[in-house]
Amino acid sequence: MGYLILKHLHIGCVVLSGTGFLLRGLWMLADSPWLQRRSVRVLPHLVDTILLGSAIAMTVISHQYPFVADWLTAKLAGLLLYIGCGTMALKRARSKPQRAAFLLAAVLSFAWIVSVALTRNPLGFFATLA
């Protein structure tokens, strides 16, 4: 599979993953029964698996690796923050206000990851402040 196809697949999965996460977060805050649907529980895992697989494939093809390319290291660190905040937002935080705060933190970290990818700068949207 060519790099350009992988990149488009990756970007598509980024959009699906981010939109799906935000939707699930809003449903969680609204106590929506949609969260209990099988497709809502399974689809994010499928999308995120394809997202990760395409990221790894692009890394190998381009020979740009985290801990070598600063911007990829920043994306990886942001991903870990996003996963941690997302887990707290959707499952682990005890109260709705805590979940809402973690949801906001996860969405902001997601936006920062995207800005790092677009600018290929480890500071992402913070680069304009420097």
Rank of each mutant, 00 (worst) to 15 (best):
K96T: 09
A106Y: 05
L104V: 15
S32N: 07
Q64L: 08
I5W: 11
A101V: 09
I113V: 15
I56D: 00
G25N: 00
A105F: 07
A127L: 10
W27H: 01
A106W: 04
A105P: 11
N121E: 14
V42P: 07
V60G: 00
L52E: 04
N121K: 08
L4M: 13
A55I: 04
D31K: 04
P33A: 05
F67E: 05
A100N: 08
L118R: 14
V68Q: 07
G78T: 09
F110C: 12
R38P: 01
I113M: 11
V116I: 15
K75T: 10
V14C: 09
T87R: 14
P44L: 04
H10Q: 10
A30I: 00
I56V: 15
V68I: 14
I11N: 04
L90F: 11
S39F: 04
H45Q: 12
A74N: 09
L26A: 02
R41P: 02
H45F: 08
Q98H: 08
K91A: 14
A77G: 08
Q98R: 12
S115Y: 05
P97Q: 10
L118T: 15
L81P: 03
F110T: 09
Y3A: 05
P33I: 06
L52A: 12
H45G: 12
C85Y: 07
R94L: 14
A117W: 06
S62L: 11
V47E: 00
I5K: 03
V40A: 06
L4H: 10
S95V: 11
D70P: 12
G78H: 04
R38G: 06
R41V: 01
G124C: 15
R99D: 08
A55P: 01
L90M: 11
L80M: 12
S115Q: 04
W71L: 02
L4R: 11
T128P: 06
L43G: 04
L35S: 08
L35A: 03
P122M: 09
L26F: 11
L80E: 06
D70W: 06
A93K: 04
H45K: 02
L79P: 03
L6T: 08
A100L: 14
Q36E: 14
R37D: 03
I113T: 08
Q36M: 07
A105Y: 02
D48P: 13
R92T: 13
V68C: 00
W71N: 03
Y65C: 03
L129V: 15
G124I: 05
W71C: 02
K91H: 15
A117I: 13
I5T: 15
L9P: 01
L26I: 13
Y65A: 03
S62F: 02
H45L: 10
G86M: 09
V116R: 00
V107A: 13
I50Y: 02
R38E: 07
D48N: 13
F110H: 05
Q64T: 13
R94K: 14
